[in-house]
Design a protein around this nucleic acid. Structure first.
Lengths: 204, 204
DNA sequence: ACAAGTTGTATCGGCGCGATACATCGGAAC
DNA sequence: GTTCCGATGTATCGCGCCGATACAACTTGT
């Protein structure tokens, strides 16, 4: 119920913009989350099926993507669109900020949908992610201290590098948290939507 | 045959030091590759079974780990040790430097076993990894250039950060490659260990 | 006109993960 | 002294994800 898996959430997000079929969806998500971690069809299509079965999305015969070439026998394609249940689920998910929002695999997805998220939730997720990373920092340095002599130079170097990588991400998050605090409304370079965002309770 | 999967390789490496049972193995590997990506029993035990079936390892009744408390009914544990076939497989794998040595998930494992690897192979793996990362760099900047206006600020920021991360790793590799070139014998980063490191056939 | 590449949907086997279960042992609490 | 908790230890189940693969129709280059 409350356990929307990451891929489902990502698809929900993409389809909220416009209907898409599988192939497009894959490209979209692939480049959204960086070209690495490109999602495979072996996960996509089964996931779409699950979502249809769950009533979150519906399959239309075709996507209204290319207004040109109206008649003739179009290549077979299946366009998916959000149902009301899907929209509801997405909204619910976007408003939430639990541990599942800052796990390794989930954080990127949530972050890439931040324009659809209100400022308070954004901040909560950013901070949650930061504290998760801080835990890791502890674990790694502990582990390095403990293994001081036992570990060979290459293993140590690997750990050192891993530690550094996490430290960098913490710095990145700190920067983002700062920005979010100083401009909670939804201030983005090229999104001039003067919308519904802040009402009442924001600002910690 | 030639397709040794990553977990198998990691286990082969750990067991080459001394016999271990599952629980120890998990800790060992977990801290070797950083405390994150802690390997689960749901993969470990099945993998051990596969390896036994393949003849790479053998199961003894007990590990000779704690010389104290000789008698009595020891807790049930199964110590695994490498067979000759396992040693051969490990040796073969360590001498090889194919694409499977610098994939995302495999590289760390190979790197953490570098003390067991000769200098020429080390350099090949390091350079292979570097060029893989260089490809990614290209892909990401392409993707960012292409999505210039379409992407919202958060998605762009995510991509920018991803790019930076890859750049950092390339720098790290460059440093390592430099060190490896200037001290091919078995010299390690900052290890003043005049100790146990190289014995036997080092230096190609 | 024909080949080659791109778009598009779909499944299969296998593996890794999280959850879970169940036993034993050491030590701390009371 | 006994009771209970947490670490040690082995094992399995379901399920999601991946890589490989197959197949079909459209598009473009030559």
């Amino acid at each position: 119920m409350t356990k929307t898996d990451v891929l489902t959430l990502a698809i929900l997000g993409s389809l909220s913009e416009r209907p898409l079929h599988g192939y497009q969806l894959r490209k979209e998500l692939g480049s959204q989350l960086g070209p690495f971690r490109a999602l495979s069809y072996g996960s996509l299509y089964p996931c779409l099926k699950r979502m249809v079965a769950a009533g979150l999305i519906a399959a239309d015969g075709d996507a209204g993507d290319e207004p040109v070439r109206a008649s003739a026998s179009r290549r077979s394609r299946i366009a998916y669109r959000l149902t009301d249940a899907g929209k509801a689920q997405l909204g619910e998910e976007l408003a939430s900020a639990g541990a599942s929002s800052w796990d390794d695999d989930a954080f990127d997805v949530r972050f890439s949908m931040f324009t659809k998220t209100d400022s308070v939730t954004r901040l909560r997720i950013l901070e949650g992610r930061r504290s998760r990373l801080a835990e890791r920092l502890e674990e790694v340095s502990d582990s390095m201290r403990r293994a001081r002599d036992r570990a060979d130079a290459y293993t140590s170097e690997l750990q050192r590098h891993g530690l550094e990588r996490v430290e960098r991400e913490v710095e990145w998050l700190d920067k983002l948290i700062d920005q979010e605090r100083s401009a909670p409304g939804g201030q983005q370079p090229n999104a001039a939507t003067g919308g519904t965002t802040s009402r009442g309770e924001n600002h910690a």
